[in-house]
Design a protein around this nucleic acid. Structure first.
Length: 136
DNA sequence: GCCAACGTTGGC
DNA sequence: GCCAACGTTGGC
């Protein structure tokens, strides 16, 4: 099982909205690097849900419920979407600043490639962040 | 609101 | 195929 991180601006689609919706289509990705990751996602994989710009923190965990398919927001079959569902909110959201202050997480894609909207997370990073969130 | 980083576009 | 110009994202 793989781990991921997906970003959203809370003013556009906050985690609470995903909780309300029970499931959403993660579409509209128009970036080649992000697409590679979307296509690599498997059903059951889990992803951190990160709020960019406002909040700037990981607020919850989502899981992939449907693997990559043609993005419904375009007729161009070059682009794909996945379906995600909420797993749970984190007890304590993990701030961007906290991640930055943690040397073992300095190599995270979130730090190095801040503009990438869909990114992989290693198991080590995943566990570390869960601890910081008070989940373990 | 500013600006750095980065992806994309288009001229050559 | 290179690279300058431009647009967008996201941290500050």
């Amino acid at each position: 099982m793989a781990y991921w991180l997906i970003k959203s601006e809370p003013s556009v689609y906050p985690f609470d909205q995903l909780v309300k919706d029970k499931k959403t289509c993660w579409d509209g990705v128009r970036n080649y690097a992000a697409r590679i990751h979307l296509r690599a996602m498997k059903k059951g994989d889990e992803a951190f849900f990160y709020h960019s710009n406002e909040g700037m923190e990981i607020v919850g965990i989502a899981k992939i419920v449907k693997e990559a398919y043609q993005d419904p927001t375009t007729t161009d079959d070059a682009w794909v979407a996945v379906d995600v569902a909420p797993v749970r909110k984190l007890k304590n959201p993990v701030k961007h600043a906290s991640i930055k202050a943690e040397p073992s997480l300095a190599q995270m894609a979130l730090m190095r490639l801040s503009r990438l909207s869909v990114q992989p997370v290693t198991e080590v990073e995943w566990e570390k962040i869960l601890k910081m969130a008070g989940e373990k």
